[in-house]
Nucleic acid binder design. Sequence first.
DNA 1: CCGGTGACTAGTC
DNA 2: GGACTAGCCACCG
Length: 103
Amino acid sequence: MIGFAAQCYQLVSKIPKGKISTYKEIGLTLNTKAYRSIGRIMAKNPHLIDVPCHRVVKTDGYIGGYALGMMKKIELLQDEGLIIKNNRIVNYKNYMFYFIAKH
DNA sequence: CCGGTGACTAGTC
DNA sequence: GGACTAGCCACCG
């Protein structure tokens, strides 16, 4: 059986390099409002390498948290070409990746 | 801007 | 196996 966590991991793993998504999007895609659950699952991420959860940020483009610390998360994102300022992704909307089509 | 509330899962006890 | 707790959030006042 595919658990909730597995679905999250699967979605996140589909985010292309240089792109980001939000916890909300994942929630919408999985048709749930369990935003916090998603965060908790990521925090316990047993697939830290396989699942690039550093590409998942808050709805406002703020970094949020990361198992290895926000600094590490920022590093990884910057390494993919994103610009981070004050813990926030500059022009994050340009990098947004939607799992489902939005108008 | 801060605090409280909501919704949901996986772990732990 | 039931109950409790924590969590990388979102939204509203």
